[in-house]
Design a protein around this nucleic acid. Structure first.
Lengths: 227, 227
DNA sequence: GCAGGTATTCTAGTATGCAACAGTGCAATC
DNA sequence: GATTGCACTGTTGCATACTAGAATACCTGC
């Protein structure tokens, strides 16, 4: 969001509420369908309704809350449609980025990428899922930088927000993490061999790995979905 | 935005203000850098500051306004960086859409596409720039539907908002419109020949036509830019 | 005449109160 | 016993008032 609002702002109460709720929603501490009253949240933070209203409005813009006039506001359900759309865009952008990166990359990022891959390996051995997610996130950011398209990562991150909650439900096994890691390696390898086609195949397969996970979550937690 | 908020809501005062200001900003009736006082706008609409605040907040989220705490809010300047990013995403999504469309398309949309192309030709002859922009917009929406990826157009439209104002400054000549029309024809032709590579080349050239236009606008209206 | 500080006047952030509307439960009637 | 009407409660939308910070203009001292 800072990308849009520009200048780093003094932190306002509304910001605090926003960050807190965002975190709770994405971590699924607030489940889809949960009723959110402005008054109740205001009380909880010791504030008036106004800053809470502000925060609610922002969360609605991100698609995390559903505000219905004169009716209660609820934590938005997952939507297969929205997820599909977000993944489509993400795939499109990643493919474009990596194609660029395979044709001409910024070699000064190579060392960071190697270090990141090493770190992935370490946290997989330690079976630290949280850390792996973090490293994965950074990997894709690094690839954007490598493609001299750092800005593209904003778009990826934006779409990530719409899918992130869902990922909290996918208990990542060590094998699954290993598969993702192998994809990463293959992508980097293809990039360094200047093999755009190989990279594209790899990234598509990489992002497709989420498909069965989503189907499984939909089957297990149908009540979290609106469709 | 309806995609995010879901249900069709009763129109609120904040909605009215939002729509009105959005329109004014995109049409460049409000120029980048214009100071926007909540109080002043509220007076103009005969409302209190609250709904105006709401509208401002939404416009900030879209990157059209810049709210600075305790300082005046202004119409956001163009940013080459933001434009670059938006165009990158747009290109990525369009390429992905059209590649799909070239591989397997929904033929039931063909007739609408043909009708749209005819309309483009007519409005070019009439030199109706506004109508051409509209037809162009619809063309790309139709191509998304043809690719069975109607949802992808949301992403395109979203990014369009960031660039749309700028297009108001590009006085489109009949020749320029004709060139765009020819691109459209070539894209459709490639699609119907199942020639994804030809389509990709065409769409990239198509979207690249904006590059010199932007450079020219930047040169002529440097004061509208923040960089 | 110039520089620095202060006071004024903007701005936005927040608090509170009122109005309008949706949902719910109870009661009265059929 | 079922159904309909009504009042009540809870919700958001909007208005107003107050606070605090930032910019500016002015005034004073040099």
């Amino acid at each position: 969001m800072d990308v849009l609002t520009g200048i780093v702002d003094r932190r306002t109460s509304a910001d605090v509420v926003f960050d807190h709720l965002y975190d709770q929603i994405v971590r699924l501490e607030l489940l889809p369908g949960t009723k959110m009253s402005e008054i109740e949240v205001a009380k909880r933070f010791g504030l008036s309704r106004q800053p809470v209203r502000d925060a609610f409005s922002r969360l609605s813009n991100l698609g995390l809350l559903l505000q219905r006039p004169q009716r209660s506001t609820i934590v938005r359900h997952f939507s297969l449609e929205v997820i599909r759309s977000a993944r489509f865009v993400r795939t499109a952008v990643e493919v474009e980025v990596l194609r660029n990166a395979a044709l001409s990359r910024d070699e000064s990022v190579d060392a960071e990428i190697d270090a990141n891959l090493d770190r992935q390996l370490r946290v997989i051995d330690a079976n630290d899922v949280e850390a792996f997610h973090q490293a994965d996130y950074e990997f894709h950011a690094l690839m954007c930088r490598s493609a001299r398209s750092a800005f593209a990562f904003d778009a990826i991150a934006e779409n990530k927000a719409k899918v992130d909650r869902l990922c909290m439900l996918s208990l990542t096994s060590q094998d699954a993490m290993r598969a993702l890691y192998d994809d990463h390696r293959e992508i980097v390898s293809g990039q360094r061999r200047n093999a755009p086609d190989a990279v594209e195949t790899a990234i598509r397969r990489h992002l497709d790995r989420l498909t069965p996970v989503i189907a499984q979550i939909h089957a297990e937690h149908g009540d979290y979905f609106e469709d």
